[in-house]
Design a protein around this nucleic acid. Structure first.
Length: 936
RNA sequence: GCCCGGAUGGUGGAACUGGUAGACACGCAGGACUUAAAAUCCUGUUCCCGUUGAGGGAGUGCGGGUUCGAUUCCCGCUCCGGGCACCA
């Protein structure tokens, strides 16, 4: 007997292509279901075993939904703009589109190997001008709209201009960057450049000078979520704050809707919390503090306006615009040296040391509007220019950081909240009773906050305000390999939309920034300047193309619009989105924002793009290290077996990663290099050709195993193609699912795969006997067989609905073992189910199962078997009987089906009573499970 | 520091809304087949005591609690993983 997955799978692959089995149509009477994967960036390294994890899960679900009679959209594409292709181009001169296309072809080959049911006819590539034409078009829509806070939606900037012409901006309630009031008359007299500047304050895609994350090494600006610990996420280079003129998207206009929308979607609570924190809504008030010797006022935001009587100083961020203006001559030196100090501190330094207290006194005083007290104004970098107003009223009696600051610099501290009645409460808990606070005295905090705000508003010194931590998204990159902005400027710098789309990237032969620090596109001189206009030379960031790609799949070949109304009205939104949790605040926020914008424009019918999101965990790898003595001995490198290290007390060792192929029993405690492995290692690393290897008494060089990333630099990459060659696609897919719960991170370990391989062979042997004779018959299945089938249907159903694919595999194994036990040879009852997990498993057979009759129906996806409770009949079930909590005996009852269990218990009660031997029964508790409880 | 998760055999992991803990698989041990090995198949496998056969006791990170009954619920810890981090 012989199960040859390779042959079988090849036949099916061909069949799928020739018959366009997975082609999905937009017009169907069936209900729609949209299963989406996060599309990959096609890197040069190809796929490793970790990548397909989520794709396999979503593929199972897509197949499941097809069998249930849905018209399923299940596409795949490529997020193809990005830094690696550009860096590769800088190194090799190969144009990014060339290397990207090579990588895409390689990815496609690998993906095809995995048996997915993608409709490849719908694939997208974000770097294809046919695609980014529409990314640019949507950008222009953002550019051409502003956010009207009165109607709570995006509206045309042309309408806003009309308002300006008629009445200025006095009545305009719009999301904007800067408040400057002007009249209709003033508007009419502004120059085109001034108008352009003002409109930029309102546009949803706009230009502004702001502090950005500048990475010198990469020569570009990075988004906040591309910076980790003050270093660039890609490459790990230092990132500094730098003022630059940049494009940005006004995502803050949608902050409240992005927050509210979370209540209507099915994401994990953890992920929703992450997004909520990122949006960071806080309610409070803005208050204006007059300065003692200056016309200007300091605007602060606080969540605790009730503590205003406890303000003993104010702090401005070092970058605050008033700093130089208000600093007195005596304090000038202090302030300037502090500015020099804080300016020299990188983001990273500041984060590394949050404990140390630094700051400088400006010499200026502000006036507390509530009690007229003079309060000193300081600067310190614990106040951030990017949050709130970049200035705070400091209440050392309440806020921990303010208190540290006050103690350090000897500033007064006034207690204003009495929390003695609330044990363990912190000031942020907003509990306690107001003291030392004039008219607020005796109030509880929540009440005092309300009272303070109404007083502030009555005095016209501020107002209640909701503040968000969310920042506008920086949308400029000084790179080549991204979407060019369809924007041009006239000689006065007035911006115009470029409507002839796509605006294609010009060809370059050098992709580096210019010597004077301009973005690479500046090298295409003709492209940048046509005599009348100059072009924008920044390009869009990676999240541009990925913010709407799922909509393009609905109508991928449309040349006149990004997607047709009919297609989006049919497919509507993504029912299931599967991908990694690392995109929790980046891609997911941006695409939700774009979607809401498009909803405002009537382009899409739903408020949210993704109904349900499932995060798959990371597949980790095993990293194997050798111990290398840091100091050579006698001019030779020395490797020491892990169990011989105690002979080298006081010596220091380096950890040298070794290719896992050379290691015996890799991933276990006792993994080691044998003599052959050592030879392979030497051949692989000729620099260690004459090294000494101190092995243990068994001649083994024990290695150190760690769980970590799968990565080329740890030499632990396992290519799915290799696994598939050995075990087949079905086996690979099932094993990946069998490894553990989808959302958990877990290490890849090839060893266990033989269990799944055995299962598939066993399953195969339900079709054939030892002489490879066909066993399947058309006879009706027996009751016993039907019971196994319907139990399996029930379990598998539940498993898939719960995304519990590891138990799903287990339940297939149970069913197969049972069928094997009863030597079921009449019909392969698992046939319709198994293709969910193992799409090739219906196995090629005698005349293709009567010339595709049987198999055809399976692949037409129209017959998911309903589970039928009546086949699960039990003859008798033994129930333990519990008396006063002590298990006493087994009573046997006949039951029919789960729903009737309780009645059956009732019937059996007389039996129990008899059995209890005449003792009075006080209470009988019937649990519709397994136990009968009797209290005497 | 704050916010989320999590802890079950030698290993990965099951256990529905509280109801026979350890499904399924790996590994290991023994056996069958074989001249032999590999492959395959069968049996056993939570731990401890006992063992011819039984049988008994303990047990889901630790300490308490609720309950006839707790891996599951509550309180207090320990450890591990992930995310955020001077957010006023």
């Amino acid at each position: 007997m012989d199960y040859q997955p390779g042959e079988i799978e090849e036949i099916w692959r061909k069949y799928w292509v020739e018959n366009e089995v997975y082609k999905t149509l937009n017009d169907s009477s069936k209900p729609k279901y949209y299963v989406l994967d996060m599309f990959p960036y096609p890197s040069g390294a190809g796929l490793h075993v970790g990548h397909p994890l989520g794709y396999i899960a979503s593929d199972i679900f897509a197949r499941y939904k097809r069998l249930q009679g849905y018209n399923v959209l299940h596409p795949m594409g490529y997020d193809a703009f990005g830094l690696p292709a550009e860096q590769y181009a800088i190194q090799t001169g190969v144009h990014p589109s060339v290397s990207t296309n090579q990588n895409i072809n390689f990815y496609r080959k690998q993906l095809d190997n995995l048996g997915f049911s993608f409709d490849w006819d719908r694939t997208v590539n974000t770097s294809d001008p046919k695609y980014y034409k529409w990314t640019q078009a949507i950008f222009l829509k953002l550019f051409g709209h502003y956010y009207n806070n009165s109607t709570n939606k995006a509206e045309s900037i042309d309408d806003l201009i009309l308002v300006f012409q008629n009445e200025g901006n006095i009545n305009v309630h719009a999301a904007n960057t800067q408040d400057t009031v002007f009249s209709a008359n003033e508007w009419m007299n502004f120059s085109p450049a001034q108008k352009d500047e003002i409109l930029m304050n309102y546009r949803l895609a706009y230009r502004k000078v702001g502090f950005v994350n500048w990475c010198e090494e990469l020569g570009t600006v990075l988004a906040n979520d591309e910076v980790k610990d003050g270093l660039s996420e890609r490459g790990g280079y230092p990132v500094v704050k730098k003022p630059m003129r940049q494009w940005a998207l006004r995502i803050t206009a949608y902050a409240e809707r992005l927050l509210q929308g979370l209540d209507s979607v099915d994401f994990s609570e953890a992920l929703k919390t992450q997004q909520r924190n990122w949006i960071g809504k806080s309610e409070g008030a803005k208050i204006f503090f007059k300065l003692k010797d200056d016309e200007d006022v300091i605007e602060v935001f606080t969540t605790r306006p009730d503590t205003v009587f406890g303000v003993t100083f104010m702090v401005l961020a070092p970058e605050h615009e008033l700093v130089s203006q208000i600093t007195t001559t005596e304090q000038k030196e202090d302030v300037e040296s502090y500015l020099a100090y804080s300016g020299s501190r990188s983001e990273r330094d500041r984060m590394a040391d949050v404990k140390s207290v630094t700051g400088a006194f400006t010499g200026a005083y502000a006036i507390n509007p509530f009690n007229g007290e003079s309060i000193p104004v300081w600067i310190a970098d614990y106040v951030l220019i990017g949050y709130g107003t970049g200035a705070i009223m400091a209440v050392p009696g309440g806020d921990e950081r303010d208190e540290r600051f006050a103690r350090h610099f000897g500033i007064d501290i006034i207690q204003v909240v009495d929390q003695s009645a609330y044990k363990g409460a912190s000031i942020s808990d907003k509990v306690g009773e107001m003291i030392n606070s004039d008219f607020l005295n005796g109030m509880v905090v929540t009440e005092a906050i309300k009272m303070a705000i109404s007083k502030i508003e009555a005095l016209k010194i501020g107002q209640g305000k909701v503040n968000y931590r969310l920042r506008d998204a920086n949308f400029s990159r000084q790179r080549y390999w991204g979407e060019p902005f369809p924007i041009k400027y006239d000689k006065d710098g007035v911006s115009f939309a470029e409507t002839d789309l796509p605006l294609e990237l010009p060809l370059l032969n050098n992709y580096k920034p210019t010597s004077d620090g301009k973005a690479p596109l500046a090298r295409a001189a003709d492209w940048c300047n046509d005599g009348l206009y100059t072009r924008e030379i920044d390009t869009m960031p990676g999240f541009a193309g990925s913010s709407w790609y799922f909509l393009r799949y609905m109508d991928p070949h449309n040349n006149s619009e990004p997607f047709s109304k009919e297609s989006v009205n049919y497919w509507k939104d993504v029912d299931l989105y599967v991908g990694g949790a690392e995109h929790a605040v980046g891609h997911l926020m941006y695409s939700r924002f774009w979607h809401k914008f498009m909803y405002d424009l009537g382009m899409v019918p739903t408020r949210e793009p993704y109904k349900k999101l499932v995060n798959q965990g990371m597949l980790q790898g095993v990293i194997e290290f050798l111990y290398l003595l840091k100091e050579k001995q006698g001019g030779k490198s020395v490797f020491v077996s892990a169990d011989e290290l105690n002979n080298y007390d006081g010596e220091e060792f380096a950890h040298i990663p070794v290719h896992i192929d050379y290691v015996t029993d890799y991933g276990t405690e006792n993994s080691y290099l044998n003599s052959e492995g050592i030879e392979q290692f030497k051949k692989w690393r000729p620099d260690y050709d004459n090294a000494l290897f101190i092995t243990n008494k068994n001649g083994q060089l024990i290695t150190k195993s760690e769980i970590g990333k799968i990565s080329k630099r740890y030499f632990n990459v396992v290519n799915p193609d290799d696994v598939i060659r050995e075990y087949g696609t079905d086996c690979f897919r099932m094993y990946e699912m069998f490894l553990g719960p989808l959302k958990d991170s877990k290490p890849w370990d090839t060893k266990g795969i033989v269990g799944v391989s055995k299962f598939l062979r066993k399953f195969w042997s339900l079709f054939y006997d030892q002489d490879k004779k066909w066993l399947l018959t058309d006879n009706n299945p027996s009751g016993e067989e039907l019971k196994i089938l319907h139990t399996a249907i029930k379990k598998v159903n539940q498993d898939i609905e719960n995304f519990s694919f590891n138990t799903c595999v287990a339940h297939f194994m149970v069913a197969t073992n049972e069928l094997k036990k009863i030597k079921c040879a009449k019909i392969n009852v698992l046939k319709p189910l198994i293709i969910l997990m193992a799409p090739f498993a219906p196995f090629i057979t005698e005349q293709l199962w009567h010339d595709m009759g049987e198999m055809g129906s399976v692949h037409n996806y129209s017959n998911y078997p309903e589970h039928d409770e009546k086949y699960l009949v039990e003859d008798t079930i033994d129930y333990p009987v519990c008396i006063n909590g002590k298990k006493r005996a087994i009573a046997t009852f006949e039951i029919n089906a789960t729903k009737q269990v309780i009645e059956e218990y009732a019937l059996g009660l007389e039996e129990i009573k008899k059995w209890i031997d005449g003792r009075p029964v006080r209470k009988v508790i019937i649990v519709p499970k397994r136990m009968v409880n009797i209290v005497i």
